[in-house]
Design a protein around this nucleic acid. Structure first.
Lengths: 175, 175
DNA sequence: CGACGTGGGTTCAATGAACGAACTGACCGT
DNA sequence: ACGGTCAGTTCGTTCATTGAACCCACGTCG
């Protein structure tokens, strides 16, 4: 979508946004990145995305300044992908999209998001109803809700079952 | 995406939502519907979407209960597509996506949204900063911003230049 | 030393979706 | 009878996605 045909006639910021994050898988990659997934292989197993598509998306997102590619060890060379400010700014969009999906189609909540400072569950737009403020993304705690699978197959899903702050990297499975 | 391959491994309401509105063009069709576009031909000229794709999207959105197909004249039989509650519930998502696109990539505002009651421009999540409430979608007025093309080619874009409430149908060009 | 494993990719053939142009069909006005 | 509008469907071509296979640099185990 970003390549080749685009939403040519649209002079609209929604269309512009969709040219960048509207392709298949892209928003799910960003969601995972906000949840703390950082490595190629973790995205791969958690999303079930084809390798070639993942490589293309990570490259495109890096080029757009939504993720940043960072070398975290020299030998063997290993990179991780972390959300930039621009990527973090998508949190309210993802939050409201997820909320729409759950309210309209799912019953059970798979993940619950709370304000770390006071434990209150976030409202529709990422605000804290108790404090009356928009909660900065690093101050959001994610924990499994009643609809979560208690024993998922892949290690990334298992790591995401432990309550953690958004953006903090995944801890490996301590079995 | 809705048909065939889906985001199988994801037990996540964001993934569920994207299975429904994540296909190319879908969110733009819903955006136009919220702006007051209702007829096949108006979507066609305003979006520049291939006819076959538009027909498929309208059918899918109707099947998902996001748009409702309504006969508005008997002879010749003509239908219009209007957003349901479920479709209207996507407004905060579209609003925050558009805001992200403009803040991160565009400078100029193409469209401005105000609270009809007080004229205040809406905040990021569709709330009225003056009144402190979430503005119901029918009470939002849309008008062209500084970045809007003052003399667009297609009649639908021209009709959208006149300030109007969301959801109200397009008035034809009075030239 | 050589075999195997791991992380992070690239290549390739087959399939599916999107594109645009042409066609259909019901109706209206002249 | 003729042309025009609206709302599609059909169809051949192009483009994107998929899944499987392959690659390579390194680290580790025996």
């Amino acid at each position: 979508m970003a390549l080749g045909k685009d939403y040519a006639t649209q002079e609209c910021s929604i269309a512009r946004a969709l040219e960048i994050v509207g392709e298949r898988w892209t928003l799910l990659v960003i969601r995972d990145a906000l949840y703390g997934v950082r490595r190629y292989n973790d995205f791969l197993v958690h999303l079930g995305i084809p390798r070639a598509v993942l490589a293309a998306r990570l490259q495109a997102l890096t080029a757009e300044g939504i993720l940043e590619k960072r070398r975290y060890q020299q030998s063997p060379p290993r990179d991780e992908y972390v959300p930039t400010e621009r990527g973090i700014a998508l949190w309210p969009t993802l939050r409201s999209l997820g909320r729409w999906g759950r309210e309209q189609f799912d019953q059970e909540q798979v993940r619950v998001f709370r304000h770390a400072a006071c434990g209150t569950e976030l409202g529709s737009y990422g605000e804290c109803p108790a404090c009356g403020t928009i909660v900065p993304v690093p101050d959001v705690v994610m924990e499994p809700g009643p609809g979560a699978d208690p024993d998922p197959a892949d290690p990334v899903s298992r790591a995401l079952l432990r309550p953690k702050r958004l953006l903090t990297p995944l801890e490996p499975d301590p079995v």
